[in-house]
Structures are given as structure tokens and as C-alpha cells.
């Protein structure tokens, strides 16, 4: 049995890493989108993947939701899957943020593109800090409006043990845009994360 819990020091350290990663991500995004990107300090939460389906099904019960998944794999056993959740009204008009012409990309393509950008910029920022290098698989829309989110998450929770929930809230000039990001991480990879956190803590 792997101890999934983090010590208080490890948790603080992780929050700091996430803050820095987010800062770097929004910095890069602002350059790419050539606009001001406002980013709230992300709240992180470590939860067992088993409770994820229920908590998210409740949070998104009232409306349609789209989920985009992207796998990642790094050195020393760091790997997992990133899931981004968009409410229907947030999924519209992403073309504007990306600078595409409206007819140029379908809504699904816009969703996978923005998801890939958010996931890879954030995770690369995280990886740099723990001296790791991460590769990615192509993003996929795993569910759209009419499929049950709970069903999808239940299938995922068989594969993964721990979920790092990061609430991202992006605001791009006059266009408010929000999505939730969840990193699903298997047990042995959490070990790698804990190890990386301890290494940083020991250096201080």
C-alpha cells in the first residue's frame, strides 16, 4: 500500500511549484495570445481518484460539460493523465482566444487545441522545477454534452489512484474563460513526485 498523503511541508512545496508553473504558463500564454492574461492563484487539492466521479458529477450536474484528456510521461516514473473540464458556455468562442477564424476550426478542434496549450505549458513549467522532462500524447475529447461525465470518470478511476485537482481560472482581457484541470496520477508516480518534493525541501 502506497501512502498517498503528503506531509504539510510537501504540500506547501507542491503549492509553490504549481504557483510558479502557472505563472510561467500564463506568461508564455500572454506572449502567444498577445494579450493580457489574468490568472488567479490556483487552488490545489489531492483527492483519491475513487471519489472524483461523484464530486465532479455533482459540480457539473446542472449543465453540459466537455472533457479533454491528454496523457503525459516524464523521467523517473513521473506520468499520468490530465483532464480539462469545460462548461458548455466556456467551450464556445475559444476560437477568439486562439486567434483562429471562426470557420477555420471546429469546436472540438478548438477545445483540443486550447487544452493542449494549457496542459503542456503548465506541466512543462512544473517539470522544469523538478528537473524533469515531459512528453505528451495527443489530446482527445473524451466526452461532450450528452454523455454522462460520471461514467467517464468512473472508467478513469480504475486506472489511476490519485488525483491532483488544480482549479485554473483564466481571464483573457474582456473575455472571461474558466476551466478545471485535474491531473490523474498512478500510485508509483506519486512516489516519484514525493521524492522530487523531498529533494527540493532538502535543498532549502
Amino acid at each position: 500500500m502506497i501512502d498517498l498523503s503528503l506531509t504539510e511541508d510537501q504540500r506547501d512545496c507542491l503549492q509553490e511549484l504549481v504557483n510558479v508553473a502557472m505563472g510561467r504558463a500564463s506568461d508564455k500564454l500572454a506572449r502567444f495570445l498577445q494579450t493580457f492574461v489574468h490568472l488567479r492563484v490556483p487552488a490545489i487539492e489531492l483527492i483519491s481518484a475513487q471519489v472524483l466521479p461523484q464530486s465532479f458529477a455533482e459540480a457539473y450536474a446542472d449543465q453540459g460539460v466537455s472533457m479533454v484528456s491528454q496523457g503525459f510521461y516524464g523521467e523517473r516514473g513521473v506520468r499520468g493523465e490530465s483532464i480539462l473540464f469545460y462548461r458548455s458556455h466556456d467551450a464556445q468562442g475559444i476560437a477568439r482566444i486562439l486567434g483562429y477564424e471562426p470557420e477555420e476550426a471546429t469546436e472540438v478542434e478548438q477545445l483540443t487545441d486550447i487544452s493542449s496549450i494549457l496542459t503542456t505549458t503548465f506541466l512543462s513549467g512544473l517539470a522544469e522545477q523538478i528537473d524533469n522532462h515531459i512528453g505528451y500524447s495527443a489530446p482527445r475529447v473524451v466526452t461532450s454534452d450528452d454523455t454522462s461525465i460520471e461514467k467517464h470518470l468512473q472508467q478513469l478511476s480504475f486506472t489511476w489512484e490519485l488525483a491532483l485537482k488544480v482549479d485554473i481560472s483564466y481571464q483573457v482581457t474582456d473575455y472571461a474563460f474558466h476551466c478545471d484541470m485535474v491531473l490523474l496520477i498512478p500510485g508509483e508516480a506519486i512516489h516519484s513526485f514525493q521524492q522530487a518534493l523531498d529533494n527540493i525541501l532538502n535543498e532549502i
Binding site: K28, L29, R31, F32, A105, T106, V108, E109, T112, D113, S116, I117, T120, T121, S124, G135, Y136, A138, P139, R140
Partner: peptide, 14 residues
């Protein structure tokens, strides 16, 4: 170039 991260395109969309 700007983000320094990979990007993808899937046949199901294009």
C-alpha cells in the same frame, strides 16, 4: 515556437 511545448492535430478533426 512561443510556448516551447508540442502541439497536435488529430484526423478526427482534420
Amino acid at each position: 515556437f512561443v510556448l516551447g511545448t508540442p502541439a497536435f492535430s488529430n484526423w478526427e478533426q482534420r
